[in-house]
Each structure stands twice: as structure tokens, then as C-alpha cells.
Design a protein around this nucleic acid. Structure first.
Lengths: 344, 344
DNA sequence: CTGTTAGCGCCTTCAC
DNA sequence: GTGAAGGCGCTAACAG
């Protein structure tokens, strides 16, 4: 493969000159400049980013570590991240931690060994090892989706965070259902311990309170944040003596799981039971039940994460912040409303 | 950041020894070995892959360039690729060509400058620039999904390819619908020129022929391979004097578009019109219409692509091959069949 | 068994 | 306006 030295030789100049015309880093006579460009073209020279990075100590790459790349929510985030990264001249390295703390540590280290300048990660439920690694190696990072507790006392918090506002939207779902007359509204919540789970449960309880409904722990089940768990949990809910008349699912994977359970029990939505969910589906308008949902600004979350990361790279000393992006309520018919209309 | 020299100094050995214990590349006395390991641990040393790659001329990374990462089909491919890459110790760089030939060239060059050892790409409809670049720079590559014509005469073909078998499955869809009594079966085909489009049209015509039905070019429309185009094309189809009684869509994005058009026209599936599609949806069992579909082995396609690429890296001289993976027919109810049963 | 040394391809002072 | 030379962090001969 042609190197810069080859180009220099072929153009009859020094490597320094080649480097400078390629990077526009110092004035070069039009004539010599053209000679270099011709040589580049003729040899099919392609700069070696590795060598450059070795000396500049900048790779212009960022790492993305999110689990379940199959999840449409993360897919949209990925799009936002990819687009924003490219726009800023950064390349994207991706790795899937598979929601396993140990594997998470591994892939993060892999990314770091490749010297990504920073990483965007959706932390696993047990992010201890992750945090330790990032802090120890001073890897700039921004967390996505799930927030990680308050910073340790032994120094300033190292991490920025972006996520969607989820408490209030869930409250809205509850009050909407209550407004339709439902008095037993079940919740299929996510993995205990995740910040998203906690927030959504809070939103649920606030909604119940606002509607003058009692909190009944028997109809709050944990679906482990994914489809299989939600199917199981929903199944249990449905076998209850006095089953709920409405259901809220706390993320898209669990919505799928809940629907499976509903189908298995021969229940139709919204005829037999109303359903509202957190996370929208792109095609939700086209199939029935047409899901009434809270839609997260997934692409924006991804794009925002990139911007926050680049901000931090530009100024490592800036104070950490956690940004919350607003969701929108997408009213359809799975809640039992006959027609589309604005939320009450 | 700690370097190997730091570790060597701290452990009281030479950098060569450090390198060797880290890579297990030559025997080292247990005692010195431990000293090195301790130093590594104490300094929080992390190898710099860039420097290593510069000397070994191996990056152990591959690039993935596919458009529309949002498309569930590509998402599953991505999963397959990510898993297979990791399994073989490779990292993954991704870039979205946005189905634009110029941009495709750009991202491919970006990937190459980062010295990925090879790349997996779903070529754009106009892959001329892509091919030229890959050949000129001798970048090992395997193509996905869309096949690229026969190799030029000026040398052996450079590229391996993987895709799903799509002719025969589409034929199956046609004969299935014909078997249900349909005599006007429309096709929403993809972008003209893509191998996938050509193959699927061939399958369509074969199916018509096998069913003793005439080919009517008015009910074969081009949906440009994506949702918006399909919506428009399907709309035109529906405004036809004698509209088809059944529809086949040639990929998942176009299925969405077609459904939108159907909805806009107030047509229900399968009541007013039957629908079969190429590409399945993971959640298709849970919503209605429950789509009768041809399912591609997407994950396998991704994994297979990685394996082919690694095979080629291992033996650059091996003959090029193009692999076709079989699809499966997933019978549901959008075709108009009352109950699930095996295809006729 | 371990150390010394010469690059890998490039950027960047410092001279000219 | 251009060139020479050192060094980024690491591996791989080659000595010892």
C-alpha cells in the first residue's frame, strides 16, 4: 500500500510537504501542491489514520455500547448517533454489552483499547464495573436511557447523561385511563433497580393518586424490561382473581410480551382490556390494536448524546449535566377511545 | 496515559518483555511475568491498539456499510454481524451510506482510511464508484442483500456475496394467492436495477405463469424499495379501473407504505384485498392484519457475511462465491386464509 | 530467558 | 516555501 513516502518520492518533494498539502496545514506553492495531488491520485494513496492518530493522539472516533440493537428504540438512537457523529467528522465503533455487566466491562475495554475519544453507553443494571473502569481510565462518556446514581464523593461526577422524561408521561397514561372510567389499572414495569423503572413506577403512582385510585401492589408486576419477562408477568396478572381492566407497559419490548400474553389468554385490545404503552412503534398506525403510546424522541436522544460527548471532549472541565428530553403522547385507540382526539 | 515504557520501568524490565508477557508471545519467568502484571495493574495500563496495528499491519476490525439502519431487516443483519465479529475477535465500524452512491464512496473511503481489514456492504443502486474504489485499493469486501452484476473482464471478481433466495419464495406467494382464487395479483416491486428487484419480479412472473395467469404490466408498480415510494405506487394501483384483488409487496419498507395507501383508501386486509409480503416482522403475530410473509434469515446473512470475509482474509486467492440462503414461508391470515395451515 | 534496536506511517518543531 | 529529523506506542528480529 502506498505510503506518504511513496507520494513524496513520486512528486519529488519531502514527506513534510505531502503532509502539509494533504492537511492544508501550511501554505504550499500551487505548482508543488499540484504535483503532490497528482502523485496521490496516480498512486491511489490513502492516508493511514492509525499512524496519524498515533502522533496526534486523536482518533476522531467514538464508541457506542448499547444492548439489544434489535430494539427499535435503540435502533433509532443508533441512527441519531451515527448521523451526528458523521456530521462532526467522527467515526463510530459499536459493541453490544448484551446487558451483562461482565460483558459490558469487556466491550468497554475493547473500545478503549481502540482509543475511541469517548463513548456513549446505555449502562447495564449493574454498572459498578463499568463505572470503575471509566473513572479509572478517565474515559469521557455519556450515559443513555438509564441514569446512574449520584456521583461518588471522591471527586466531581465524571459522566453526562441523556434520557427521556418518563415520570410525567406515565402519569398522563394513568389519568387518561382513569378518565375513561378504569379503576384497576395494572403496570408491567421493568427491571427493578433501573432508573427508568423507578421513574415510571413513580409516574404510575402519581397518576393513581391524582385520579383518586388506590395503589394495589398485586397489579404492579415486573417484566424484567424485556419481552419474555413481560409475557410471564402479564400472564400472572391475568390469572389474578380480579384482573385489571387496563394495562400500562413500561417499554416497547414489554409491550410485545404483554400482547403475547393477552393473545394467549384470548383477550382482545381494547375490547376486553385497555392498553397504553411507553415507547411508540413507527408502524403503530397501520395495525390493530392501534396503540396509544408515549413516544420518546429516540433519534434526538442519540444526537444529543453525541453533542454532549463532543462538548465534554472540547472542555473536560465543564460541569456534568443530565438532560431530559420531553416525550409526546400519541393518542390512538388501544386505550378504548373510539376515535382519535387530543388527550384529556 | 501509561505506556508500555512506563510499565517496563515500573516493573524493572524491558519493553520487549512487557510486550511478550502481554501477548504470550514468548516464555517469561513466572517471577518477571508477575512483576509485569503487577505494574500493569498498578498503573492501569491499557494497550494502545493503534500502535500495535501500525506495526503488525492488522487492525482486527471490519467495516459495515449498510443503509437504513432503522430497517428491521438490516437491524437483524447488524446483530448477526456484530455477534460474529466479536466472536472472532474483530471490532465493528459502522457507517450509513444513505443509499446514495456519492455518500457511499465517502463512507467506504472513511472506513478504509481507518484500515478496516475488510468491509461488508449493502451496495447502493449505482455501485460504480464503490466497485472502482474497492478494486483499486484492493479492499476485501463482501456484498450483502443486493448482488452486483458479473465481474468485469479485466481480472478475477473481487467480491463475495450473500443474500437470500428470493425468486422461488415470491413464486410461492403468487401461487398461494392464485390457489385462493385470485386472478389479479399486483406486485409492488423495488427500485429498478437492483438485483433483488429483478429476482422478485422474475419470481412473480414465474408464479403467474405457473398459475395460468396473464402478466399485466399495469399491476406491477415500482415502489422504489422504500415506504414513501410504495405508498405512492400502491395508491396509483388502487385508482386503477380494475384494481387487483391481491397484492404482493417486495420488502418490509414497501409493505408499510402499501398498508398506508390501503388505509388511506379505506381498504381492509384481507377483507377488501389480500396481502402477502416479502420480509417478515418480528411482532407480526400480535397485530392485525396478521401478515402472511416470506421470512429472510437476516441474522444468518449477517453472520455468514462475516465468515465469508474472514475466509477471504485468510486466503485472498480463494475463488469468489455468492451464497444464497433459503427463506421460509410464514403463513398467517393477511392472504385471506381463515386459519393457519401449511402452504398448499 | 531477557534486552537492544529498528522501524510501522505520519505530524511537527526547527532549520534553511 | 520547503526539508530533515525526532518521536507517537508498539512489535519483532537479533543479540546476549
Amino acid at each position: 500500500m502506498a505510503t506518504m513516502a511513496d507520494v513524496a518520492r513520486s512528486a519529488g518533494v519531502s514527506v513534510a510537504t505531502v503532509s502539509h498539502v494533504l492537511n492544508g496545514t501550511r501554505p504550499v506553492l500551487p505548482h508543488t501542491r499540484q504535483a503532490v495531488l497528482d502523485a496521490v491520485e496516480q498512486l491511489g494513496y490513502t492516508p493511514n489514520t492509525l499512524a496519524r492518530s498515533l502522533v496526534t493522539a486523536r482518533t476522531r472516533s467514538i464508541g457506542l455500547a448499547v444492548s439489544a440493537i434489535s430494539n427499535p428504540y435503540f435502533t433509532e438512537i443508533l441512527q441519531g448517533v451515527e448521523a451526528a457523529a458523521l456530521e462532526h467528522g467522527y467515526s463510530l465503533l459499536i459493541a453490544d454489552p448484551h446487558d451483562d455487566p461482565a460483558h459490558e466491562r469487556t466491550v468497554v475495554q475493547l473500545l478503549h483499547e481502540r482509543r475511541v475519544e469517548g463513548m456513549i453507553v446505555a449502562p447495564s443494571p449493574e454498572p459498578g464495573g463499568l463505572l470503575a473502569y471509566l473513572r479509572r481510565h478517565r474515559v469521557p462518556a455519556v450515559f443513555l436511557d438509564r441514569l446512574v446514581g449520584p456521583p461518588a464523593d471522591d471527586g466531581p461526577p465524571l459522566f453526562d447523561q441523556v434520557c427521556a422524561e418518563s415520570t410525567e408521561p406515565i402519569t398522563g397514561l394513568v389519568t387518561h385511563l382513569a378518565g375513561l372510567g378504569h379503576r384497576r389499572i395494572g403496570l408491567v414495569a421493568g427491571l427493578p433497580g433501573l432508573s427508568t423503572t423507578t421513574e415510571r413506577i413513580t409516574g404510575y403512582r402519581l397518576g393513581l393518586a391524582a385520579s383518586g385510585l388506590p395503589f394495589d401492589e398485586r397489579i404492579l408486576v415486573h417484566g424484567d424490561s424485556e419481552a419474555a419477562g413481560a409475557e410471564r408477568a402479564t400472564g400472572e396478572l391475568l390469572r389474578l382473581g380480579s384482573r385489571p381492566t387496563a394495562l400500562i407497559t413500561a417499554n416497547n419490548a414489554m409491550t410485545i410480551g404483554a400482547l403475547r400474553a393477552l393473545q394467549a389468554h384470548g383477550l382482545s385490545v381494547p375490547g376486553d382490556i385497555a392498553l397504553c404503552c411507553f415507547d411508540d412503534f413507527a408502524w403503530a398506525d397501520l395495525f390493530s390494536p392501534r396503540l396509544t403510546a408515549v413516544s420518546q424522541p429516540s433519534r434526538d436522544i442519540g444526537a444529543r448524546a453525541v453533542r454532549m460527548l463532543l462538548d465534554r471532549l472540547a472542555d473536560p472541565g465543564r460541569p456534568t449535566r443530565t438532560e431530559r428530553l420531553p416525550c409526546s403522547f400519541v393518542h390512538r385507540t388501544s386505550c378504548g377511545c373510539p376515535e382519535e382526539r387530543n388527550p384529556s
